[in-house]
């Protein structure tokens, strides 16, 4: 069974190739951590109750901010998850696109068809209607 995956197209990376990335993560996180650690001690420290209150355009804060929000944000998140996963399927194809030739293209065209019909469905269902 000849399967085309990401690893077949390019020379395989070894764990060593990722070592610099680990180094960079350490550096970046170290820098950020250090800065965030120092900065509170540099400034003045005169906390008052008023200052520690959240800002609500000058009046006292009312209630808790963490209330259920419009379902639309949630919908976007969910749709993102779905479509993003579908997009992932394009990547192996794109990388091996030349080897797969027309057969692969028709298959992907079918996949795009499903993608589009799903997209059309959510459009028609009003999932992306932002104007109330």
């Amino acid at each position: 069974m000849n399967l085309f995956l990401l690893q077949n197209a390019v020379a395989a990376s070894t764990a060593v190739d990722y070592l610099p990335i680990a180094l960079q993560i350490i550096c970046a996180a170290g820098f950020v951590g250090l800065t965030l650690g120092i900065s509170p001690f540099l400034g003045p420290n005169r906390k008052t109750a008023e200052k520690l209150e959240t800002f609500e355009s000058g009046i006292h804060a009312v209630g808790n901010a963490r209330q259920p929000v419009a379902i639309k944000y949630f919908l976007v998140a969910v749709l993102f998850v779905l479509f993003d996963v579908e997009v992932i399927f394009f990547y192996p194809y794109a990388v091996n696109f030349r080897e797969l030739g027309w057969n692969g293209f028709w298959a992907v065209l079918m996949f795009v068809g499903f993608f589009i019909s799903g997209f059309y469905y959510i459009l028609k269902k009003g999932a992306l209607q932002w104007e109330d």
Binding site: S39, P40, L42, G43, P44, N45, R46, K47, A49, K51, L52, E53, T54
Partner: peptide
């Protein structure tokens, strides 16, 4: 850097 670091209560 020199500003006061405020974390709301």
């Amino acid at each position: 850097f020199m500003k006061e670091d405020v974390i709301p209560s």
